[in-house]
Simulated assay, not measured.
Amino acid sequence: MKLALLSGAHVHTPGYLKTIRERDDLELAVVWDDMESRGQAIAAEMGCPFEADLDAALRVAGLEATVICADNAGHRKLVEASAAAGLDIFCEKPMALSVDDANAMLAAIRGAGVLAVFGFFQPYQGAALAARKLIAEGKLGTITQLTYRNSHHAAYGRWFDRPEVAWFTVPEKAGGGAFCDMGAHAMHFVRLVFGPVSSVSASISNKSNEYPAVDDHGVALLEFESGATGVLEASWVFTGGPTGLEVVGSKGSLRVRGNQCEFTPFDAKPGEVQVIEPLEAEPTRLERLVALKQGLLDRAEADRDLDSCRDAVAISVAAYASSREGRRVNP
């Protein structure tokens, strides 16, 4: 499959290039980037042409898909251009920075009839799939509450000092800091698994003053249409402690940490925990798009996932508005 890389701005770009190099069925045919020096360096590394004109890059003969690793604000333009060219799409997360942009991107994707995958991977890991199966089978009963922490120490580690990735700390390009970045994974996961969110209350701020133009920590309280309550935490100033998902229901609770899932029935003896075997992980990110094209994953389910990507944007927008205005916001 011939691919076009549209921007190498994202920190995950090297991982996608590694995937392309290691798979015999993938070929990087062209690189476009609004930072020419960055794009030219990637093209030289991968042994393919750099094209400064986006339209020309999308017209390269034999192209089947685009890999979009632009700054967050650049996603809509590149997704719409790819869809208009009839190309399948892998795009980094978050989907967009506004609900209007997300809706326009969905319309472009569905209107063109192309496949699209965004850069979310946590729901498709083995332990997460095992947890989702327990929830879907009703083993937890009625879900009443959940927590999800997705955090690391990027601010203290000065991860975004290099010019190529400094956009993560520029509000106009990133849309926000840790809550937009790490929180996107949590918002997508809980929307996908637990359904629509009816209201959001949040506190989002900068704790470290390391990248003061954007937030480095945020907590959101979500009320789901199902009646469940969720607490999401996202951080760039996290130096230790547990991350992952905890869910409590009327029949029991579960915890997902890394690739381990633990289930505790309501009537369990004190300290009794059942370790649940992880399921086989599904392909994620760029390889998820490849699997969809090969018919290895359900395309209808993938299309429904796009709604969760869109709704994660709405939750994020509502959370930032709640934090600014000091009130509960409906996404």
Rank of each mutant, 00 (worst) to 15 (best):
Y148D: 12
R149C: 14
N150G: 00
H153C: 14
H153D: 15
A154V: 00
A155T: 07
Y156W: 12
Y156Q: 11
D161S: 08
R162F: 01
P163V: 08
P163G: 04
E164Q: 13
A166V: 00
V170E: 14
E172P: 06
K173Q: 15
G175T: 09
G175V: 07
F179Q: 02
M182C: 14
M182R: 08
G183T: 03
A184Y: 00
A186I: 01
M187W: 00
M187P: 00
F189H: 07
V190M: 02
R191E: 14
P196W: 00
V197S: 05
S198V: 14
S198M: 04
S199E: 14
S203P: 01
S203T: 15
I204S: 04
K207A: 14
S208M: 10
N209C: 13
E210W: 07
Y211P: 05
V214A: 08
D216E: 12
D216I: 06
G218T: 11
G218E: 09
G218D: 12
V219K: 08
L221N: 11
E223T: 13
E223F: 00
F224S: 03
F224Q: 08
A228M: 06
G230K: 02
V231F: 03
W236M: 10
F238P: 03
F238S: 11
T239S: 14
G240E: 09
G240P: 06
G241L: 10
G241K: 09
V247A: 09
G249H: 03
K251W: 01
G252M: 09
R255I: 11
